[in-house]
């Protein structure tokens, strides 16, 4: 190796090591430390010393939360470099499990989110426990349901069904609906939600998508009826129209003069210019 090459390499090593030293130094201002963590995420892969120093910051409850979060972001960025990060992985996952019960909710949620993405059985168990017994909950029920949806199991469906019937808050009901969207047994329930004008519109939007996936024929029938219904909300009609235009039975739609007439009405009289445009595009597709 030439002297020039050696010097270039050592100066690069100095720079990433220097970044780690700043990032993990309690005496440095938080802003500098956050920047240093982002500067060289792959520095943790260069030595076990670097890795352990960063993991120590994540675990340290006396550290500032913004610095701990920056350390977690830096590790998450490094984790994308799978081959280089492989030797760090076990310690990383163990640290995330440790801080999954941290007193700080942001740290907890970040750790739980990353582990849920990894389909981590330990986290799934904790999340289900929290949904069944709120005193043990690590995150709000809506977040727990969302994280469980990364890897849906039969047990999650059963908990989600209970929450839909008896929701602790509207957001939890919405997440439970989203989780159930792949549950074939829930199709009749989604029909009800879709057609219930007293339901939250976001829930009806979720129900439309769920029913379209679970039972396309049933959805097409309901979408048609909702478009013909002059008392139906325009946004729900727009969702129906988008679904029919995107995924519908083209032959059936093209022959359906009553449906096309009602879309004509929407293209002319909808209050929103966007819905008018959408209706016109729909007609353009089916009326050549």
């Amino acid at each position: 190796m030439t002297t020039k090459k050696k010097s270039k390499q050592s100066s690069r090593k100095r720079s990433t090591r220097a970044a780690i030293l700043v990032a993990t130094n309690l005496r440095r201002p938080a802003k500098d430390r956050v920047t240093a963590f982002a500067e060289a995420p792959l520095a943790v892969c260069e030595s076990d010393q670097n890795l352990q120093a960063v993991l120590a910051v994540v675990r340290d409850q006396k550290e500032l939360v913004e610095v701990r979060m920056a350390a977690m972001d830096s590790l998450a960025a490094a984790a994308f470099s799978a081959i280089a990060f492989a030797p760090c992985r076990n310690d990383y996952i163990a640290t995330l499990r440790e801080v999954a019960t941290d007193p700080n909710p942001q740290i907890r949620e970040t750790a739980l989110g990353t582990l849920a993405g990894e389909k981590d059985g330990f986290v799934q168990k904790k999340l289900l426990e929290g949904l069944k017994n709120p005193a043990k909950a690590l995150v709000p029920p809506e977040k727990a349901l969302q994280l469980l949806s990364y890897d849906v199991h039969a047990e999650s469906y059963s908990v989600a069904r209970d929450i839909v019937q008896n929701p602790p808050n509207p957001a939890a009901r919405q997440e439970a609906l989203r989780l159930l969207a792949a549950d074939a047994a829930s199709a009749p329930f989604f029909e009800k939600v879709l057609r219930d004008k007293d339901e939250m519109r976001e829930n009806r939007q979720i129900a439309a998508s769920a029913l379209r996936a679970l039972n396309p024929d049933k959805f097409q029938k309901h979408a048609r009826e909702m478009l013909l219904d002059k008392s139906e909300f325009e946004d729900i009609q727009a969702t129906s129209l988008t679904a029919l235009g995107q995924f519908g039975d083209n032959e059936a739609v093209a022959k359906d003069t009553a449906l096309l007439k009602s879309v004509d009405r929407l293209s002319d009289k909808a209050k929103s210019a966007k819905y008018k445009r959408s209706a016109k595009q729909f007609l353009g597709k089916y009326r050549h």
């Binding site: 990364y150 849906v152 989203r178 969207a181 792949a182 998508s209 996936a213 969702t239 988008t242 995107q246």
Partner: peptide, 12 residues
């Protein structure tokens, strides 16, 4: 139409 996005059997 991305409102109908589904991956791994889960909506959204």
């Amino acid at each position: 139409p991305l409102q109908f996005w589904v991956t791994d059997g889960v909506q959204g």
